[in-house]
């Protein structure tokens, strides 16, 4: 029996789908059987980011409504056969699923896979409640901006209400130079406000955009810092104590403080 992790943020456009694809792929590359579930019904994206758009026959709503069996809807990744995708529906909307149905589907998927990553839609309404219904844990994605942090904070509160207690934080699209100049919220401050464990920091990287457009998640790109950061997150999920990597060559004093936040390098 695997575990289900919902990847959520409240705010849109902070990198939930990209993070789901990359963390999932990284876990699969490390030998885990992983299924990605796209819960963003009506705004199907995860298949595009993974480059699997052309293989879709059935989707999660078909499974929910009994149009097909779960196995028929699962799409195996073309690069790593341990990775599968359960795509969202493009034609239906978010009212097509209920939390109970989702809990059942995720439960069935968990039997076959070691990790089930659920890509949550933006917002905190029905779509959010459906996406978190079957989750054992949560990963919050936030960018170092006040708006994203506030929405993440709201979502953490709601997750506690939904009895998802184990919540970890990924800070995405970090630009060290802007942080140094005080134009971007510092990592330390984000962690201090949200008061949850930090799972990783992803630097802002053009390779992420390039990868997303070519259906090649950035973890596959050697030499990309964002790719390395996602691989590190996967290793931390598997329990390895990986220290945060320096985001700049001359990595300033804040990296040391960061490591202390995570309990490394004392």
């Amino acid at each position: 029996m695997g575990e289900a992790v919902v990847i959520t943020s409240g705010k849109g456009g902070v990198g939930k789908t990209t993070s789901t694809a990359n963390i999932g792929l990284a876990l699969a590359l490390m030998g885990k059987r992983v299924c990605l579930v796209d819960a963003d019904i009506g705004l199907r994206n995860l298949d595009v980011v993974l480059g699997l758009e052309n293989r879709i026959l059935f989707d999660v709503v078909d499974v929910a409504q009994g149009e097909c069996r779960l196995e028929q809807a699962l799409i195996q990744d073309k690069r790593v056969d341990r990775l599968s995708l359960l795509p969202a529906s493009q034609t239906k909307d978010k009212s097509a699923l209920t939390p109970d149905v989702m809990r059942k589907i995720v439960g069935d998927v968990k039997v076959q896979f070691e990790f089930v990553l659920i890509d949550c839609p933006a917002g905190i309404e029905q779509g959010f409640r459906v996406a978190v219904a079957g989750a054992d844990r949560a990963i919050i994605v936030a960018t170092p901006e006040h708006a994203a942090v506030r929405d993440a904070d709201r979502v953490i509160g709601l997750l506690q209400g939904e009895r998802v207690q184990d919540t970890k934080l990924v800070i995405n699209r970090v630009r060290p130079s802007m942080m140094r100049q005080g134009d971007m919220l510092e990592i330390e401050e984000v962690v201090s406000i949200l008061a949850v464990d930090l799972l990783g920091v992803i630097p802002d990287d053009e390779a992420v955009i390039r990868g997303g457009n070519h259906g090649e998640p950035v973890v596959l790109t050697q030499g990309s810092k964002a790719g390395q950061a996602y691989r590190n997150i996967a290793r931390r999920i598997l329990g390895e104590p990986v220290p945060l990597m320096p985001l700049e060559e001359n990595g300033g004093g804040w990296i040391g403080r960061l490591r202390r936040l995570m309990g490394f390098g004392r």
Binding site: R150, D151, D153, R154, G157, L158, I193, A195
Partner: peptide, 8 residues
């Protein structure tokens, strides 16, 4: 006991 989060 806090944090009292956004929206609470």
């Amino acid at each position: 006991y806090g944090p009292v989060r956004a929206g609470q």
